[in-house]
Simulated assay, not measured.
Amino acid sequence: MRHDSRLSRMLHVLIHMDRHEGAATSETIAAMLNTNPVVIRRTMAGLRDKGYVQSEKGHGGGWRLARPLSGITLLDVYRALGEPPVFAIGPAVDNPECLVEQAVNAALDSALREAEALLISRLEKVTLADLAVDFDRQLEKVRGGAHEP
């Protein structure tokens, strides 16, 4: 089963946009992510609707951040992407009358809800500025020649 990497990819894009002079076109972002510009426009539209990015038409147009990175959490981006399922696993629905299936599903549902609540709580505490600080720290190590194992 394929993983949904939209959250990771959009976090990546937003940090690049913060460091980019001027607007980033859908074509530029698509090339960075090895995808189609239409996919980028559709995905960025959700971020625009929530007020995290803005689009500009015409020559020199494209996408820009509408807020500083410190004003956007990972949870904000997750929600703007439509809150994709967090887990690939889930309860079975093959035989809903089966008592064993019901017991298994109840246990899985409870554990998955608890795990999802923990993840959501953590996503809410991390801003894109936090990620950018980590990026800057790693970049400094690379530029300074200091490599940690």
Rank of each mutant, 00 (worst) to 15 (best):
G82Q: 08
V77I: 15
P96E: 06
A30W: 01
V133F: 08
R2I: 11
V77Y: 02
R79I: 06
S55F: 14
G46T: 05
N34E: 15
R41F: 03
V104Y: 09
H3R: 15
I29Y: 01
A132D: 14
R143C: 08
F87R: 02
N34T: 13
V93K: 12
S26Y: 00
G145R: 05
I72Y: 00
K141Y: 14
F135T: 04
D94H: 09
L118A: 09
R143E: 13
P85W: 05
H20V: 02
A45K: 15
T73K: 05
E114Y: 07
A129G: 03
A106N: 12
R42G: 10
V100A: 15
R6V: 05
V53D: 01
E21L: 14
K50P: 00
F87I: 09
S70D: 13
R6S: 09
I89G: 02
D49R: 15
L81W: 07
L112E: 01
P149F: 10
L65Y: 00
T73R: 06
A146I: 11
A117S: 15
L11E: 03
G58N: 05
R19M: 08
T73W: 03
C98T: 02
E124R: 15
R19C: 06
N36F: 09
R42W: 11
L81I: 09
R79M: 08
V93I: 11
R79N: 13
L81M: 11
E140M: 07
D109N: 14
T127C: 06
E124D: 14
D94E: 14
A80K: 03
T43A: 07
S70Y: 06
R137N: 09
E148P: 08
G145S: 02
V38D: 13
L128K: 01
K125V: 04
P91S: 14
A80R: 04
A146T: 13
V133R: 11
V38W: 10
L14F: 01
M17R: 03
V104K: 05
M44A: 03
P85K: 09
N36L: 05
L75Q: 12
D18W: 04
Q102G: 05
T28A: 12
F135L: 14
L131R: 01
A30I: 05
L112C: 06
M32A: 10
L33V: 02
A103Y: 05
R79P: 01
N105T: 03
G90D: 03
R42P: 04
W63P: 00
P149H: 12
P68F: 12
C98M: 04
A31D: 14
D4C: 06
A106W: 10
R9Q: 07
G62L: 00
R48C: 06
